Structure formats: C-alpha cells, structure tokens
Amino acid sequence: MDYTLAIEGAPETIPGGTGVLLLHPSTGETDRIDTEFLATDTDRFLVISTRTTAREVKQKLEYYDVDESRAEILDTLSVERGYSRRSGENIHYVSAPHDLDGILEQTRRFLEAHDGKTRLTVDSVTELIYYADEDDVYDAMVELLSLLEEYDAVGLFHLSAEVHDDETVERFRELFAGVVDLDADGEVSCEFPSVE
C-alpha cells in the first residue's frame, strides 16, 4: 500500500513500512511538516509524544486543522509529572518517557486495532534519548520500524541534529528509508534513496 507524502522535495508516495527521519534544528518549526504528514492520505494516526502533553498535542492538531477524530495520542509525560489525566478512548498513557516497552506495546495495540492507512509520529527521538539510554532508544526505534513493516504503516521520527554528535545523528539516520532535513530558515531538503 502506498501513502501520499505531502512534503516538499520528497517523493509523491512512499510504500507502507517506510520510516522517515525528520532532522531539525533544536528551535526548528516542525509542527507544519508533522501535521501535514499526519493529515494526508490517512485513516488513523498515532502521535507518540515525548515532548508535550496530550492536551498540547490536541491544541496543535486543532491549530493546524487536522481531523482529530482520526487521532490517537500516546502521552509519555503526564504520569511522571503528576498532571491530571483524562483518559479517553483516543488518549493513552505510559508511566514515563523512558518506558520504551510501554511505548512499543501501545503502538502495537494501535496498529492491531486499525485497518486501512495508519501513520505515526515520534516527537521526539531526541527527548527519548534525554530520558533513556541511547542504545535502548536505538533498539526501540528498530522495533518501531519493524512494526511499521508488519502492519504496512508509515512513520515520521523527529531528531534534533544540533543536540547530538555527528556519530549519533548518522547512526539513527541509517535506520530510515528517507530523511527530511529542515534547516534553521525553514528550508526543506529530502533524501529517499530507496524510494526514488
């Protein structure tokens, strides 16, 4: 199954099972790319949020006019920070951002529960590395990518290029079939060698 990819300079479509790395500066405006990715050619999507709470994710979707009825949110922050949580059928929680097993389990449940075109975003891998060991995060991303393949879904994974050394950026970059590089001026360049 092919998915339309509404990102400037990227291929028009990518096949199911494709993971895309979004490299961005630490202050980069990623919301526009993220929401266009989620809103296009999608039946259901999952936002794995390690950077903002579910409430903030909902505000972002509303601001960018993304159909919230298609959304599920995995909030990794609220439990650990002691925020009040309102569980709904579309909002899920894990105990903390370093609960990688919980993130993988919730992602599998989401993908098992929905047919059709499904997408996910991980916002962000950088935040996961703050909370958990880099090797463990790497292994978890490998697992997430294998879930995309198993369920014919696609995913967008945020990584802030400025806060990691070149070796770390390159290590994660090599995992993905495509890379979208957002610079400080908002310019986008793309590499999809296995898709083009």
Results as ranks from 00 to 15, higher is better:
Ile48Thr: 06
Leu23Gly: 05
Arg85Ile: 10
His24Lys: 12
Val57Trp: 08
Glu134Gln: 15
Ser194Pro: 02
Glu150Cys: 12
Val179Ile: 09
Ala153Met: 09
Tyr3Ile: 02
Thr35Met: 14
Thr52Arg: 14
Val180Glu: 06
Arg44Ala: 02
Ala39Ser: 15
Asp2Gln: 10
His98Gly: 01
Arg51Thr: 15
Asp67Gly: 07
Asp34Val: 13
Leu23Trp: 02
Phe172Gly: 02
Glu105Asp: 13
Val163Ile: 15
Gly155Arg: 10
Tyr3Asp: 02
Asp181Val: 01
Met141Glu: 15
Glu89Asn: 03
Leu145His: 07
Arg51Tyr: 08
Ser26Leu: 14
Thr40Met: 11
Val163Ala: 09
Thr42Asn: 09
Asp43Val: 06
Val137Met: 08
Ile48Trp: 10
Leu144Ala: 04
Leu159Cys: 11
Asp166Ser: 13
Phe37Gln: 07
Leu5Pro: 02
Glu127His: 15
Arg173Glu: 14
Glu149Gln: 13
Ser95Phe: 00
Thr27Ser: 15
Arg108Asp: 12
Lys117Gly: 13
Ile129Phe: 08
Leu145Gly: 07
Lys60Asp: 04
Tyr3Met: 08
Arg119Ser: 06
Tyr138Ser: 09
Ser160Asn: 13
Thr121Tyr: 12
Asp185His: 07
Tyr151Ser: 07
Asp41Ser: 11
Ile14Phe: 09
Asp165Ala: 04
Glu187Lys: 07
Thr13Phe: 05
Ala184Trp: 13
Pro193Phe: 09
Ile48Gly: 03
Tyr151Asp: 10
Leu23Glu: 11
Leu74Ser: 10
Glu36Ile: 06
Asp2Ile: 02
Gly178Ala: 08
Gly16Met: 09
Ser189Arg: 13
Lys117Glu: 14
Glu112Ile: 05
Pro97Ala: 00
Phe192Asp: 10
Ser124Ala: 11
Gly19Ala: 09
Ser84Pro: 01
Glu12His: 07
Lys58Ala: 09
Thr118Leu: 02
Ser78Gly: 00
Leu100Ile: 03
Asp183Pro: 12
Asp99Ala: 01
Ala132Arg: 06
Phe37Ile: 05
Thr27Tyr: 13
Leu46Asp: 04
His98Phe: 03
Ala132Ser: 15
Glu62Cys: 02
Val188Thr: 12
His98Pro: 00
Asp65His: 14
His114Lys: 09
